[in-house]
Write a protein that binds this DNA or RNA. Structure first.
Length: 501
RNA sequence: GGCGAGAUAGCAAAAUGGUUAUGCAGCGGAUUGCAAAUCCGCCUAUCCCAGUUCGAUUCUGGGUCUCGCCUCCA
């Protein structure tokens, strides 16, 4: 039985879907005006893991992850760049998809853009106005009247009084209450036509929160199972979503509740501080991927629990790399079962696993798999699940069991890990193209030679010759030289192989 | 100021009212021409002070410290 920590209850709860066997899940995605940073990577990977586990548990999941493609920052950035809003957002949507693909993130079932759902938003705002929950201020903005919504604050655990006490921003004119938030922003003269939509309240554009309410209810219904996002969205974004969506529930005496389970992931930190744009202490995903294999980054994220803080540093990434190397080394030593080997050549990237994890290959009654499942069912405890993977590694190395190796790979697949050819991972071919680029740029001929596979293989041959001639000094010199270049040689009965340190 | 989360070994990170987390690092042994990998064994821990209990890292209270939200934010 799956248990989920529900922010709404501030406790782990047994998960019961609204419709047996089916799950509607909405996750707040990115505002696309810049490259994604590691904090975004964590949301992408964390909810990808949730998505995979729900599917592996047999649910038919409808996963919606939105894209915010209209927003103050977008308008500002486009103006700075002298380009259209659409050109800017299209570029960063493409970049986001590249980053997500690299990290092995499966595509959501729907990826709606805010600009495509303006009519639905206007409809919802009209309903709210009709019910006295929204009003148009003198400046033309349409605001939500928070004090008219009884449940305001239930997600973030705040009361209107607490919030007012902590008020530290200037209150916009015309609001009935300082905490009222904007549903529809009236058009400003200096804004491009591209961001002006007609409405009964005049030309304008949507406020930030309304898009998620409108798209969520359009694609998943007015009441659905799971809503996720970063912990910083809890307030005000998700609180406001609840106010909007529950305030606009259909008038048919049905449920009245918007979402049953709210899931929030923890932050990525740098030097114990939240990684954020405003602090400027962020690393973009593509920056990090120049230095580290994408699967190492994915593993780094999944090795911590999704609600815990995750400190980013090179030392921690190096540590993750070492750990993942142990997993792949175990898989390298043995061929897994034929049905798993088949097609392996075609699955060279970590996102290769098909839309539904190959759970048919997992025997969940087998002790390791059972432990893995218990861990995942306990609020997606990936650190515990990963620990099971390492116990399986010991089993594989100890018994040389092909079944255990197959199990290791199959369970890895559930987490979106371990699906590459181990040799490809260990020799770091995925970084090859990049390395060559960098080497050329630095015009360091030596480094290029040393790093080239041809050179490595030639050195291995030379060393074998030296060993045959019992010239161990030369053999050791070659080993040392390659090691200094980051290449580890491994002798075995089957011959000499190499991997990157 | 209001609200919330957390403090576990050298580092990272789980769990648990009494019994091995796990990974990296370190130490000893096996193996190896030397290594690497692997196996076997070992070492380092539960922020402080009270309380509950036969027994607390785990529960309760107090304290200290850290972090987050209250402003755009994943």
């Amino acid at each position: 039985m799956l248990k989920i920590y529900n922010t709404l209850a501030r406790d782990k709860q047994e998960f019961v879907p609204i419709v047996p066997g089916k799950i509607g899940m909405y996750v707040c995605g990115m505002t696309v005006y810049d490259y994604c940073h590691l904090g975004h990577a964590r949301v992408l990977v964390a909810f990808d893991m949730v998505y995979r586990w729900l599917k592996a548990s047999g649910y038919d999941v409808n996963y919606v992850r939105n894209i915010t493609d209209i927003d103050d920052k977008i308008i500002k950035r486009a103006a700075e760049n002298g380009e259209s809003i659409h050109a800017l957002t299209a570029r960063f949507i493409a970049a986001m998809h590249e980053d997500a693909d690299a990290l092995g993130v499966q595509h959501p079932d729907h990826e709606p853009c805010a600009t495509q759902y303006v009519p639905e938003m206007l409809e919802m705002i009209a309903t709210l106005e009709q019910r006295g929950l929204a009003y148009q201020a003198p400046d033309g903005d349409v605001n939500y009247a928070v004090r008219k919504f009884a449940g305001y604050g239930k997600l973030s655990g705040k009361s209107l009084e607490d919030l007012r006490a902590g008020e530290r921003v200037e209150v916009a004119e015309g609001k009935h209450d300082p905490l009222d938030f904007v549903l529809w922003k009236h058009a400003k003269a200096d804004e491009p036509e591209e961001v002006k939509w007609d409405s009964k309240w005049g030309k304008g554009r949507p406020g930030w929160h309304i898009e998620c309410s409108a798209m969520g209810s359009k694609l998943l219904g007015s009441h659905f199972d799971i809503h996720g996002g970063g912990a910083d969205l809890q307030f005000p974004h998700h609180e406001n979503e609840i106010a909007q969506s529950e305030g606009a529930q259909p008038d048919d005496g049905s449920h009245g509740q918007f979402v049953n389970y709210w899931i929030h992931n923890g932050f990525v930190r740098v030097d114990n501080e939240k990684m954020s744009k405003s602090l400027g202490n962020f690393f973009t995903i593509r920056e990090v991927l120049k230095q580290y294999d994408a699967e190492v980054v994915r593993f780094f994220i999944l090795r911590a629990h999704y609600r815990s803080p995750l400190n980013y540093s090179d030392a921690h990434l190096d540590d993750a790399k070492g750990a993942l190397t142990r997993l792949y080394t175990a898989l390298k030593s043995l061929p897994v079962r034929p049905e798993l080997v088949e097609g392996e050549r075609a699955t060279q990237s970590i996102h290769a696993s098909t839309s539904s994890a190959r759970t048919d290959l997992v025997d969940w009654s087998e002790p390791y798999a059972a432990r893995f499942k218990t861990a995942m069912d306990d609020d997606f405890n990936t650190p515990e699940a990963v620990a099971v993977l390492f116990d399986l590694v010991n089993e594989v190395n100890h018994t040389k069991s092909a079944e255990a190796a197959a199990q290791l790979k199959a369970l890895g697949d559930v987490l979106g890990l371990l699906q590459r050819d181990p040799v490809e991972f260990l020799q770091g071919r995925s970084l090859q193209a990049h390395m060559h680029e960098e080497v050329r740029a630095s015009s360091s001929a030596d480094a290029e030679v040393v790093r080239g596979e041809n050179f490595i293989n030639a050195q291995i041959e030379a060393r074998i010759a030296a060993k045959k001639a019992r010239n161990y000094a030369e053999a050791d010199r070659i080993r040392k030289e390659l090691l200094d270049a980051g290449i580890v040689l491994e002798d075995s009965a089957a011959g000499t192989t190499w991997r990157r340190a």
